Simulated assay, not measured.
Amino acid sequence: MLSYCTNVHPAEDLAGILAQLDTYAVPVREKLGQDRLGVGLWLASEVAAGLASDPAARRTLAAELKARGLAVQTLNAFPYGGFHAEVVKHQVYVPTWTDPKRLRYTLDCITVLGDLLPEDAAYGSISTLPLAWREPWSTSHDVRASIAFEEVTRVLRSALARNEQPIRLAIEPEPGCVLDTVADAVDWLAGRVDPEYIGLCLDTCHLAVSFADPARTVERIRASGLKVVKVQASAALHVERPGTDEAVAALREFAEPRYLHQVREQLPTGEVLAADDLPEALETLPAQGPWRVHFHVPLHATPASPLESTTGVLTGALDALAAQGPLPHVEVETYTWNVLPGHDRQELAAGIADELRWASLEVPA
């Protein structure tokens, strides 16, 4: 079941979440002519904690979702809260996997998802951050994060015994973080976690930014013994010649203040240079090779020239996964609708529906 991620909606209380679903998710379902629409819920930490402590509230939420024709098989537990604050930037990586708050939030999400899964769901998934932003991080942080994942695994085993539907945690590599690339995540996770309960969330925007080959990446994950638990179907910006006046002017329109937009440049030698945000890249990178920018752009819309979209990386990853067996959960995650340049925006429900139509044609059967 294809889903869209509700972290595009700013609500951080239960009443607000339901109102946003009424305003956007239900119209999306109706525009698509579907009886049931998959939604990947984002629950801020306070909402998750309240639901986790109140079985009746969880039953009510499950009934409200069903009444609206909405189904939840995945949660996005990467942002802890404040994801639509005026400035988010590095705050999205806080608390880290060394902080007990991150563990508590994740355990709350496990409790909630266990009561929201539809009966026909093969499993549930929860995506989370790649440990932390890269600094500060040390071997002692590795130990503390490993202990936290051991506790998550213990709880996931207990949840399976109760619910008969496995729930799996999906670590999401992201440029600039401790687990910057999928290769970093594989190296850190393999042999450290139980792959039946902890695997990877493959965000295809992040994958594209790293200039990694999607098919080789998918094979590397398989060979490691880890699993792709979830795919976040997303696309980055690509610009082949970033040093031209036209390219610089186009890129400046995406240099907005709320979210971090990491940039990677691939030199003719194959070396990849890094900048932590787009304004920094425009000032410091040499612009001698193509750029990839961590800005989730709508899947169905082609950016104005000279910018391009990396949807080819998304389709390449999905094809490689389909060749290995049944696809994992696929969640469209374009959270940036409200910070796109004005000429690239659509009415939100219409835009989400258009993305899901596009994805439904590209996701292998």
Score class of each variant (00 low, 15 high):
H329V: 13
P341Q: 11
G316Q: 01
P364D: 03
I198P: 11
A215G: 08
T139E: 15
S125A: 15
G351P: 06
L51A: 06
W358E: 00
A274K: 13
T153W: 04
V92K: 00
A255S: 14
E30S: 07
E280D: 15
A121D: 14
D22L: 08
V239G: 12
L75E: 09
A233H: 05
L14Y: 11
Y123W: 10
G50K: 12
T204G: 01
R192W: 04
P286W: 13
S305P: 14
D108M: 02
Q324D: 07
T128H: 00
V39A: 12
A223H: 13
I171W: 06
I198N: 12
Y105K: 07
H206F: 05
V231C: 08
H90F: 08
R144T: 14
E256D: 03
P268G: 13
L348M: 12
A44F: 03
F78K: 00
Q232K: 02
D108K: 09
F78S: 03
A274N: 11
P341D: 09
N163F: 10
A63I: 00
A52V: 12
S158G: 10
L156R: 06
G199I: 14
E246F: 08
R157S: 10
L237I: 15
V178A: 11
E308K: 13
R29I: 00
H300G: 03
D319M: 01
L18C: 10
Q91V: 07
V228G: 11
A359C: 09
L348H: 01
T181V: 05
K89Q: 15
A215H: 04
D108R: 10
P326N: 14
H238Y: 11
A323G: 02
A359D: 09
E246T: 10
L14N: 00
S224W: 11
T334H: 15
D54G: 11
V193Q: 05
S127I: 02
V231F: 05
L200S: 05
A15N: 06
G289W: 12
T336W: 14
C5K: 01
Y335R: 06
W42I: 00
A170V: 12
P79V: 03
P214Y: 08
V332F: 07
P303T: 01
T98A: 14
P303C: 13
H238A: 04
Q324Y: 04
I17A: 04
W133L: 13
A25Q: 08
L318P: 04
C5Y: 03
C205N: 11
S53N: 10
H296F: 06
V297G: 02
Q266L: 14
R154C: 06
V94R: 15
A365D: 14
Q73D: 10
E308A: 09
L202A: 06
L260G: 08
L116G: 04
G16N: 06
E196I: 02
V92N: 01
R216V: 01
V330G: 03
R216A: 14
G312M: 02
R252C: 10
L117H: 09
R192I: 11
Y105L: 05
P214Q: 07
A57R: 15
C201Y: 10
W358T: 01
A320H: 10
L32T: 06
P136W: 11
E164N: 14
D108F: 02
P268V: 12
E164L: 03
E119A: 15
I221E: 01
G199R: 12
V112K: 13
E283Q: 14
T96P: 12
V193K: 05
P257Y: 03
K31W: 05
A223Q: 15
D344H: 15
H84W: 13
